[in-house]
C-alpha cells in the first residue's frame, strides 16, 4: 500500500450549533479544521475538554453535519476519495459499511440482543455467515476478558466497563481501513487497557488509519504516532 496516500483528508471544516430553543443562539465549535491520516498512523486529537475533539470525530463519521469544508474518505471499494461532508446519507452509510468504523464512548444497547450478537452484527451485515461471525465475536470478547457467562446476555444490564468492552469488540471486529476511537479505554481497568493498546497496535500494523481521542496519558503515549492540538481549530475565541 502506498503509505503516502492518505485514507482521510479533512480540510477547511467548520462546525457550529444553532440552538433554536434558546433564541437562535449560535455556538461556534471549530473552524478551519485540516489534517490527514495515512495508513498505519494513529492520529490523536488533543486539547482540553470542550474544545471540539468529539465533534470532529463525529463529523468524520457523518454523525454531525458540517457547516463548511471537505471530509475526504478513501472508499474501500472504489479506492476513490469520497466527500463524506457533502455526501448524501447513502454515501455515508456505504462508507460506514466498508471504509470507516467508529467506537463510541458509550455502547448504545439494543434491547434483547445478546452481547455476542451485538459484537457479531457488523460482520453479519457485511455478509459474513452468522456462525462464523459469532465465533469471531466470542474470540474478541474472550480476549477482552469478558466473563463467558455474559456472552449470551443483552448488555443493557452490564457494568460500564463490561459494556465498553462489548463496544470495543464490536468496533474492532471488522477490518475497516479507517477506525475512529472516542476514549475507548475510559472505563477500563489496567489489564484490559493493555489489551486494547495491543489491539490498536495490531490494527496499525496492518495499515489501519486510526483517529482517536485518548485522555488516558499512558495509552495515548503508547499508541499515538502524531498528536493534533484541536485548540488550534477552536472557533470559540474567534466568535
Amino acid at each position: 500500500m502506498d503509505t503516502s496516500a492518505p485514507l482521510l483528508d479533512v480540510s477547511s471544516v467548520a462546525k457550529s450549533f444553532t440552538m433554536h430553543l434558546r433564541g437562535g443562539l449560535r455556538l461556534p465549535v471549530v473552524a478551519n479544521v485540516a489534517f490527514t491520516v495515512h495508513p498505519g498512523e494513529c492520529v490523536v486529537l488533543g486539547g482540553p475538554s470542550g474544545v471540539g475533539k468529539s465533534s470532529i470525530l463525529r463529523m468524520v463519521y457523518g454523525n454531525y453535519a458540517v457547516d463548511a469544508g471537505q471530509i475526504l474518505v478513501r472508499d474501500q471499494t472504489t479506492q476513490e476519495m469520497a466527500d463524506l461532508a457533502t455526501g448524501d446519507p447513502r454515501l455515508v452509510l456505504d462508507l460506514r459499511q466498508n471504509s470507516i468504523g467508529y467506537v463510541s464512548q458509550f455502547l448504545r444497547a439494543v434491547p434483547r440482543v445478546s452481547a455476542l450478537d451485538v459484537v457479531a452484527e457488523p460482520l453479519v451485515t457485511r455478509g459474513v455467515e452468522r456462525n462464523v461471525a459469532t465465533s469471531r465475536a466470542g474470540e474478541m470478547l474472550e480476549r477482552l476478558n469478558l466473563p463467558s457467562a455474559l456472552f449470551t446476555l443483552p448488555p443493557a444490564t452490564f457494568s460500564g466497563g463490561e459494556k465498553q468492552r462489548v463496544n470495543i469488540a464490536r468496533g474492532f471486529i471488522t477490518d475497516h481501513p479507517i477506525l475512529l476511537l472516542d476514549e475507548p479505554t475510559a472505563s477500563l481497568d489496567a489489564a484490559n487497557r493493555d489489551v486494547v493498546v495491543a489491539m490498536i497496535k495490531e490494527k496499525l500494523g496492518v495499515g489501519t488509519a486510526i483517529l482517536g481521542i485518548f485522555h488516558d496519558i499512558p495509552v495515548r503515549e503508547a499508541v499515538a504516532t502524531r498528536i493534533i492540538d484541536v485548540s488550534a481549530f477552536s472557533a470559540r475565541e474567534a466568535a
Binding site: 450549533f17 457523518g62 454523525n63 454531525y64 453535519a65 446519507p89 455515508v92 452509510l93
Partner: peptide, 11 residues
C-alpha cells in the same frame, strides 16, 4: 437525513 445525524445534530 441520516437517522443518527438528525437525532444527534438536529438543525
Amino acid at each position: 437525513g441520516l437517522t443518527d445525524r438528525v437525532l444527534d445534530d438536529p438543525r
